[in-house]
Design a protein around this nucleic acid. Structure first.
Lengths: 107, 107
DNA sequence: TTGACATATCAAAATGTCATGATATAATGC
DNA sequence: GCATTATATCATGACATTTTGATATGTCAA
Protein backbone atom coordinates (compact mmCIF):
# COMPACT_ATOMS: atom_id res chain seq x y z
CA UNK A 1 0.00 0.00 0.00
CA UNK A 2 1.63 3.18 -1.23
CA UNK A 3 1.03 6.38 0.66
CA UNK A 4 -0.61 8.75 -1.81
CA UNK A 5 -0.12 12.48 -1.50
CA UNK A 6 -3.25 14.48 -2.17
CA UNK A 7 -3.17 16.74 -5.17
CA UNK A 8 -3.97 20.38 -4.53
CA UNK A 9 -7.53 21.47 -5.23
CA UNK A 10 -7.39 24.32 -7.76
CA UNK A 11 -8.45 27.82 -6.81
CA UNK A 12 -11.66 27.73 -8.85
CA UNK A 13 -12.80 24.70 -6.86
CA UNK A 14 -11.75 26.24 -3.58
CA UNK A 15 -13.88 29.26 -4.38
CA UNK A 16 -16.92 27.09 -4.98
CA UNK A 17 -16.26 25.18 -1.78
CA UNK A 18 -15.87 28.43 0.14
CA UNK A 19 -19.18 29.65 -1.27
CA UNK A 20 -21.00 26.63 0.08
CA UNK A 21 -19.16 26.73 3.39
CA UNK A 22 -20.04 30.37 3.83
CA UNK A 23 -23.70 29.55 3.40
CA UNK A 24 -23.49 26.67 5.86
CA UNK A 25 -21.54 28.76 8.36
CA UNK A 26 -24.57 30.05 10.20
CA UNK A 27 -26.17 28.36 13.20
CA UNK A 28 -29.74 28.79 11.99
CA UNK A 29 -28.95 27.46 8.57
CA UNK A 30 -27.10 24.49 10.06
CA UNK A 31 -30.12 23.84 12.23
CA UNK A 32 -32.42 24.00 9.23
CA UNK A 33 -30.25 21.58 7.29
CA UNK A 34 -30.00 19.06 10.10
CA UNK A 35 -33.78 19.08 10.44
CA UNK A 36 -34.25 18.68 6.71
CA UNK A 37 -31.89 15.73 6.86
CA UNK A 38 -34.48 13.90 8.96
CA UNK A 39 -37.44 14.75 6.77
CA UNK A 40 -38.77 17.45 4.49
CA UNK A 41 -40.30 20.40 6.30
CA UNK A 42 -42.30 23.47 5.41
CA UNK A 43 -41.16 27.03 6.01
CA UNK A 44 -43.76 27.38 8.76
CA UNK A 45 -42.73 24.19 10.52
CA UNK A 46 -39.11 25.25 10.49
CA UNK A 47 -39.99 28.74 11.68
CA UNK A 48 -41.93 27.26 14.60
CA UNK A 49 -39.16 24.80 15.45
CA UNK A 50 -36.40 27.41 15.35
CA UNK A 51 -38.59 30.11 16.89
CA UNK A 52 -37.82 32.47 14.07
CA UNK A 53 -39.96 34.72 11.90
CA UNK A 54 -41.17 32.90 8.76
CA UNK A 55 -39.63 35.49 6.48
CA UNK A 56 -36.24 35.00 8.13
CA UNK A 57 -36.47 31.25 7.57
CA UNK A 58 -37.65 31.79 4.03
CA UNK A 59 -34.61 33.94 3.36
CA UNK A 60 -32.23 31.34 4.74
CA UNK A 61 -33.89 28.70 2.61
CA UNK A 62 -33.78 30.81 -0.52
CA UNK A 63 -30.11 31.47 0.14
CA UNK A 64 -29.39 27.76 0.47
CA UNK A 65 -31.53 26.95 -2.53
CA UNK A 66 -29.58 29.43 -4.64
CA UNK A 67 -26.45 27.51 -3.68
CA UNK A 68 -27.92 24.12 -4.46
CA UNK A 69 -28.04 22.97 -0.86
CA UNK A 70 -31.79 22.51 -0.55
CA UNK A 71 -34.68 22.23 -2.96
CA UNK A 72 -38.31 23.34 -2.73
CA UNK A 73 -41.48 21.48 -3.51
CA UNK A 74 -44.82 23.26 -3.33
CA UNK A 75 -47.90 21.43 -2.10
CA UNK A 76 -50.92 23.68 -2.12
CA UNK A 77 -49.95 26.82 -0.32
CA UNK A 78 -47.23 25.29 1.76
CA UNK A 79 -43.72 24.84 0.41
CA UNK A 80 -41.68 21.89 1.58
CA UNK A 81 -37.92 21.90 1.53
CA UNK A 82 -35.48 19.03 1.52
CA UNK A 83 -31.74 18.68 1.35
CA UNK A 84 -30.74 18.55 -2.27
CA UNK A 85 -26.96 18.53 -2.51
CA UNK A 86 -25.60 15.23 -1.24
CA UNK A 87 -22.20 16.77 -0.71
CA UNK A 88 -23.55 19.49 1.51
CA UNK A 89 -25.20 16.60 3.30
CA UNK A 90 -21.83 14.92 3.70
CA UNK A 91 -20.37 18.10 5.07
CA UNK A 92 -23.16 18.53 7.54
CA UNK A 93 -22.77 14.95 8.59
CA UNK A 94 -19.10 15.63 9.10
CA UNK A 95 -19.94 18.64 11.24
CA UNK A 96 -22.53 16.66 13.14
CA UNK A 97 -20.36 13.63 13.80
CA UNK A 98 -17.27 15.40 14.93
CA UNK A 99 -18.87 18.39 16.51
CA UNK A 100 -16.46 20.22 14.26
CA UNK A 101 -14.58 20.04 17.51
CA UNK A 102 -13.04 23.32 18.34
CA UNK A 103 -11.00 22.83 21.48
CA UNK A 104 -11.02 25.78 23.83
CA UNK A 105 -8.25 28.02 22.66
CA UNK A 106 -5.73 29.94 24.72
CA UNK A 107 -5.83 33.38 23.21
CA UNK B 1 -29.87 -3.55 11.32
CA UNK B 2 -32.17 -0.89 12.70
CA UNK B 3 -32.31 2.47 10.97
CA UNK B 4 -31.22 5.01 13.55
CA UNK B 5 -32.53 8.56 13.39
CA UNK B 6 -29.92 11.17 14.22
CA UNK B 7 -30.55 13.26 17.27
CA UNK B 8 -30.55 16.99 16.73
CA UNK B 9 -27.32 18.82 17.51
CA UNK B 10 -28.09 21.50 20.12
CA UNK B 11 -27.82 25.17 19.27
CA UNK B 12 -24.67 25.70 21.35
CA UNK B 13 -22.87 23.06 19.28
CA UNK B 14 -24.22 24.46 16.03
CA UNK B 15 -22.83 27.84 16.98
CA UNK B 16 -19.38 26.38 17.54
CA UNK B 17 -19.57 24.52 14.25
CA UNK B 18 -20.67 27.67 12.46
CA UNK B 19 -17.72 29.53 13.97
CA UNK B 20 -15.25 27.08 12.50
CA UNK B 21 -17.07 26.88 9.19
CA UNK B 22 -17.02 30.66 8.88
CA UNK B 23 -13.27 30.65 9.27
CA UNK B 24 -12.85 27.90 6.70
CA UNK B 25 -15.24 29.57 4.27
CA UNK B 26 -12.61 31.58 2.47
CA UNK B 27 -10.73 30.39 -0.60
CA UNK B 28 -7.34 31.56 0.60
CA UNK B 29 -7.75 29.98 3.99
CA UNK B 30 -8.91 26.73 2.40
CA UNK B 31 -5.85 26.85 0.20
CA UNK B 32 -3.61 27.43 3.19
CA UNK B 33 -5.15 24.52 5.07
CA UNK B 34 -4.87 22.08 2.17
CA UNK B 35 -1.20 22.97 1.81
CA UNK B 36 -0.60 22.58 5.52
CA UNK B 37 -2.24 19.17 5.31
CA UNK B 38 0.65 18.03 3.13
CA UNK B 39 3.39 19.46 5.31
CA UNK B 40 4.12 22.32 7.64
CA UNK B 41 4.92 25.60 5.93
CA UNK B 42 6.19 29.02 6.88
CA UNK B 43 4.27 32.24 6.39
CA UNK B 44 6.65 33.25 3.64
CA UNK B 45 6.36 29.95 1.79
CA UNK B 46 2.59 30.18 1.89
CA UNK B 47 2.64 33.80 0.80
CA UNK B 48 4.79 32.87 -2.19
CA UNK B 49 2.64 29.88 -3.08
CA UNK B 50 -0.63 31.81 -2.87
CA UNK B 51 0.87 34.97 -4.36
CA UNK B 52 -0.36 37.03 -1.44
CA UNK B 53 1.28 39.63 0.77
CA UNK B 54 2.92 38.03 3.82
CA UNK B 55 0.89 40.14 6.21
CA UNK B 56 -2.34 38.96 4.60
CA UNK B 57 -1.27 35.34 5.03
CA UNK B 58 -0.17 36.03 8.57
CA UNK B 59 -3.60 37.43 9.36
CA UNK B 60 -5.37 34.42 7.91
CA UNK B 61 -3.12 32.14 9.95
CA UNK B 62 -3.66 34.08 13.13
CA UNK B 63 -7.40 33.92 12.54
CA UNK B 64 -7.26 30.15 12.09
CA UNK B 65 -4.93 29.75 15.04
CA UNK B 66 -7.37 31.65 17.25
CA UNK B 67 -10.01 29.12 16.25
CA UNK B 68 -7.80 26.12 16.93
CA UNK B 69 -7.49 25.14 13.29
CA UNK B 70 -3.73 25.56 12.92
CA UNK B 71 -0.81 25.87 15.28
CA UNK B 72 2.45 27.77 15.05
CA UNK B 73 6.01 26.68 15.76
CA UNK B 74 8.82 29.16 15.56
CA UNK B 75 12.21 28.08 14.24
CA UNK B 76 14.68 30.93 14.25
CA UNK B 77 13.01 33.84 12.57
CA UNK B 78 10.65 31.81 10.51
CA UNK B 79 7.35 30.54 11.89
CA UNK B 80 6.01 27.24 10.65
CA UNK B 81 2.34 26.40 10.75
CA UNK B 82 0.61 23.06 10.70
CA UNK B 83 -2.97 21.86 10.90
CA UNK B 84 -3.86 21.38 14.53
CA UNK B 85 -7.53 20.53 14.81
CA UNK B 86 -8.16 17.03 13.46
CA UNK B 87 -11.83 17.78 13.00
CA UNK B 88 -11.14 20.79 10.85
CA UNK B 89 -8.90 18.39 8.97
CA UNK B 90 -11.81 16.01 8.52
CA UNK B 91 -13.97 18.81 7.24
CA UNK B 92 -11.36 19.91 4.77
CA UNK B 93 -10.94 16.37 3.62
CA UNK B 94 -14.69 16.23 3.12
CA UNK B 95 -14.55 19.41 1.07
CA UNK B 96 -11.60 18.12 -0.89
CA UNK B 97 -13.02 14.70 -1.62
CA UNK B 98 -16.43 15.75 -2.74
CA UNK B 99 -15.50 19.05 -4.24
CA UNK B 100 -18.25 20.24 -1.94
CA UNK B 101 -20.10 19.67 -5.20
CA UNK B 102 -22.32 22.54 -5.95
CA UNK B 103 -24.18 21.69 -9.13
CA UNK B 104 -24.78 24.65 -11.40
CA UNK B 105 -27.99 26.16 -10.19
CA UNK B 106 -30.86 27.51 -12.28
CA UNK B 107 -31.57 30.86 -10.68
C1' DT C 1 24.37 47.87 18.53
C1' DT C 2 23.01 48.02 13.86
C1' DG C 3 20.97 46.24 9.67
C1' DA C 4 18.36 42.89 7.47
C1' DC C 5 14.85 39.63 7.31
C1' DA C 6 10.47 37.20 8.84
C1' DT C 7 6.35 37.77 10.92
C1' DA C 8 2.74 40.22 13.44
C1' DT C 9 -0.30 43.93 14.60
C1' DC C 10 -2.95 48.05 13.73
C1' DA C 11 -6.15 51.08 11.42
C1' DA C 12 -9.37 52.44 7.93
C1' DA C 13 -11.96 52.05 3.64
C1' DA C 14 -14.56 48.95 0.92
C1' DT C 15 -17.51 45.35 0.93
C1' DG C 16 -20.52 41.81 2.57
C1' DT C 17 -23.90 39.76 5.79
C1' DC C 18 -27.84 39.74 9.16
C1' DA C 19 -32.13 40.97 11.21
C1' DT C 20 -36.24 43.44 10.83
C1' DG C 21 -40.37 45.37 9.16
C1' DA C 22 -43.13 46.46 5.20
C1' DT C 23 -44.94 44.90 1.13
C1' DA C 24 -45.78 41.44 -2.60
C1' DT C 25 -47.07 37.02 -4.57
C1' DA C 26 -49.45 32.43 -4.60
C1' DA C 27 -53.12 29.24 -3.43
C1' DT C 28 -57.38 28.21 -1.22
C1' DG C 29 -62.24 28.61 0.27
C1' DC C 30 -66.18 31.41 0.44
C1' DG D 1 -63.92 39.00 -6.32
C1' DC D 2 -62.47 39.05 -1.36
C1' DA D 3 -60.43 37.38 2.81
C1' DT D 4 -57.19 34.25 4.68
C1' DT D 5 -53.09 31.64 5.02
C1' DA D 6 -48.31 30.52 3.57
C1' DT D 7 -44.16 32.17 1.44
C1' DA D 8 -41.30 35.35 -0.78
C1' DT D 9 -39.12 39.68 -1.78
C1' DC D 10 -37.44 44.23 -0.81
C1' DA D 11 -35.21 47.91 1.74
C1' DT D 12 -32.53 49.48 5.45
C1' DG D 13 -29.70 50.03 9.50
C1' DA D 14 -26.52 47.51 12.35
C1' DC D 15 -22.71 44.79 12.34
C1' DA D 16 -18.79 41.80 10.59
C1' DT D 17 -15.30 40.68 7.26
C1' DT D 18 -11.74 41.68 3.81
C1' DT D 19 -8.05 44.18 1.98
C1' DT D 20 -4.39 47.29 2.14
C1' DG D 21 -0.69 49.97 3.72
C1' DA D 22 1.87 51.51 7.63
C1' DT D 23 4.14 50.31 11.64
C1' DA D 24 5.84 47.14 15.28
C1' DT D 25 8.10 43.04 17.11
C1' DG D 26 11.40 39.26 17.17
C1' DT D 27 15.61 36.91 15.59
C1' DC D 28 19.92 36.57 13.70
C1' DA D 29 24.62 37.90 11.99
C1' DA D 30 28.21 40.90 11.82
Amino acid sequence: MIKQRHSLVPMTELEKAADVLRVLAHPHRLDIVQRLMRQRQSVGELAAALELAPNAVSQHLSNMKAHGIVEAQRDGRTVYYRVYNPNALNLIDCVRKHGCGRQEQTT
